[in-house]
Design a protein around this nucleic acid. Structure first.
Length: 558
RNA sequence: GUGCCUAUAGCUCAGUGGACAGAGCGCUUGCCUCCGGAGCAAGAGGUCCCAGGUUCGAAUCCUGGUAGGCACGCCA
């Protein structure tokens, strides 16, 4: 239930009616533009405010305050929650509501419980969110930790906002890199059996590949006795799967799960690239030149056309990716969201052009770029070179920092912030992490509820509580915040801005802590205690729901 | 060279074209006989990178700079 939206709708209507009446009375020319309501930062500016009069200044050719006065003069407040309207500053109309409107939120929260905050705003529109998609040739690093936390939370946000969002991890288990990986693993296996090998330039020199080879020999002790050709063919399937399943395991422990792991190889083996190329040629979106086949992406604003089939007959990564995106559309998703690292931003133009070549609107593909995560050591940038040990993996991170702290740290920042870490992850490990402040509010409430229960007081049903007793300023502000939760989710989901939720949580926790220090929950005043128990229990629900969206736990004790 | 991202308090960061620019951390000062002090209250701290422009109004939009990050393949 969207209390705030209901109230806003009522106010917008009242304001639009007021303009109409003013026009009828000859005080204004009209018509009323769309009414925007904002929540003033300072409560002395009312519960809601509108800049309607200032927006109308041009069409009315009058001073904003004069227009505002005309609107207020014709405002009918009977039958609405509006108590008063006053003109302020350059022409704002500040609206104050009768005490009691926010109190409606408590029964709604209690009734909806773990679902409070959900809405049908998205109309079940199908969205496919692809993220992380790390190469199955090595470990995941910190930028994947960031994308993983973000993507998994965004998916939940979208679903809460009434969209039907599914998630996928695209596995690049084909192409040159897989051939090279297979050769590297084969060499490492020989090395483990006593041979002296040299890892050529361009191969994967990381220690993780040695682990991979070790696992291989454990499972197939006689592996090296097979002919090389057979070994490599086997490894081209086995090695990527080794890494992919590792990614799946680590990501799950980090609270990141996918509806589907989509294999690039499966597309290639099913002949999708060949079909795509023919289809594009028929549509005039692809052509041959210099022995290669090109997609005509320049027709849609790309800098240059892109190769689909190389002159040696191999399909490019881009061709496979085009197949993958076409597949997504063919499965009935109207909106595709890809989360990529900023180091891939150069692909934006060709990707957008690609979806147009595929016959879909440019805006149906949204690409969200996460800025890079860099590592520093003693003030110097620590390049994640491929040299052995020269990186911090997601697994390393999770060994040192709790999932809650890590996720919150990434999620509280906008995707656009450039993040720098010290190699020892000091900024992440710090107990200053605001996640504890929010979790503490939740644990504190749980403690209050335990205490109350010991004294024979349970959280009452909202229908049996006189919520009007909740009249302290801190109580009203807290309820107001609780009432805004569904709108907060919708706003964050539509803007694809997960970081709004940690912000909201922080504000909510602050309002709770303020309330707690001003008002005693369990006291001799039983009716008041019951009302406050309801209030803190509803606060607990919203804290838990919001933390749940972020994939962060809501502890009952700390 | 071209393109994308960033520049706001000492630090890390918020800030749908609106009212005196905010939070956390750090700093200063108060607050526990009482539901969890991982808390609360008060205070100090700002050239919103610079210069123009758009308008009733710009941290926010536009143009041009400066600084930092990232990327520009018949690699994946």
């Amino acid at each position: 239930m969207r209390i705030v939206e209901q109230i806003k709708s009522e106010i917008r209507q009242a304001l639009a009616d007021a303009v109409s009446r003013a026009v009828a009375a000859g005080a204004l020319v009209g018509p009323a533009p769309e009414v925007f309501l904002e929540t003033p930062k300072a409560r002395e500016h009312g519960d809601f405010a509108t800049n309607l009069a200032m927006v109308m200044a041009r069409q009315e050719k009058k001073a904003p305050r004069v227009i505002a006065q005309a609107i207020v003069d014709h405002l009918q407040t009977e039958g609405t929650w509006i108590e008063s309207a006053e003109i302020a500053g350059p022409g704002f109309i500040n609206l104050r509501l009768r005490q009691g409107w926010v109190h409606q939120v408590l029964p709604a929260i209690q009734a909806e419980g773990a679902d409070y905050g959900k809405s049908d705003h998205g109309g079940k529109q199908r969205i496919l969110l692809e993220y992380v998609s790390a190469n199955p040739t090595g470990p995941m690093v910190l930028v994947q930790a960031r994308a993983g936390a973000f993507g998994s939370s965004l998916a939940r946000l979208l679903n809460w906002a009434g969209y039907e969002c599914h998630t996928e991890f695209y596995v690049n288990d084909a192409g040159n890199q897989v051939k090279i990986l297979a050769r590297t693993v084969d060499l490492r296996a020989q090395e483990l059996r006593g041979a002296t090998v040299e890892i050529p330039e361009g191969y994967y020199p990381g220690e993780d590949v040695i682990d991979c080879a070790r696992a291989l020999l454990e499972q197939y002790p006689d592996f090296l006795e097979k002919p090389e050709e057979e070994r490599l063919a086997f490894l081209e399937r086995w090695a990527p799967e080794y890494f992919r399943s590792g990614h799946e395991r680590v990501l799950r422990s980090y609270g990141v799960e996918f509806d589907r792991w989509f294999s690039e190889r499966s597309l290639r083996e099913a002949g999708a690239p060949a079909r795509l190329v023919e289809w594009l040629k028929e549509r005039g979106e692809a052509y041959e030149k210099d022995g290669a086949v090109w997609m005509r992406t320049t027709a849609y604003g790309d800098d240059k056309d892109r190769v689909l089939v190389k002159s040696d007959g191999e399909y490019t990564y881009f061709a496979a990716d085009a197949c993958y995106h076409k597949d997504k559309y063919d499965r009935g998703y109207a909106t595709l969201i890809d989360i990529l690292g900023q180091d891939h931003h150069g692909y934006l133009g060709r990707m957008k052009a690609m979806v147009e070549c595929l016959g879909h609107p440019r805006d149906s593909l949204e690409i969200l770029f996460t800025q890079m995560v860099r590592l520093f050591k003693d003030g110097q940038e620590f390049r994640m070179s491929k040299r052995r040990g020269n990186y911090v993996t997601l697994e390393d991170l999770l060994e040192q920092v709790s999932v809650d702290a890590a996720r919150y740290f990434f999620l509280m920042r906008s995707l656009d912030t450039h993040m720098d870490f010290d190699l020892d992850l000091a900024n992440l490990k710090s107990s200053d992490n605001p996640v504890f402040y929010v979790q503490y509010a939740h644990a504190r409430i749980c403690s209050i509820l335990r205490q109350a229960r010991e004294q024979g007081l349970e959280v009452p049903a909202a229908s049996e509580v006189d919520t009007a007793l909740l009249a302290d300023e801190s109580e009203v502000e807290l309820m107001r915040k609780l009432a805004e939760f569904p709108e907060e989710i919708i706003g964050a989901a539509d803007a694809r801005e997960v970081h709004r939720i940690p912000r909201y949580l922080n504000e909510l926790a602050t309002l709770f802590h303020q309330f707690y220090s001003r008002c005693r929950v369990v006291s001799d005043d039983v009716p008041l205690s019951r009302a406050r128990l309801l209030l803190v229990d509803c606060t607990r629900t919203v804290l838990a729901n919001a933390l749940g969206i972020l994939g962060v736990s809501a502890p009952e004790r700390m």
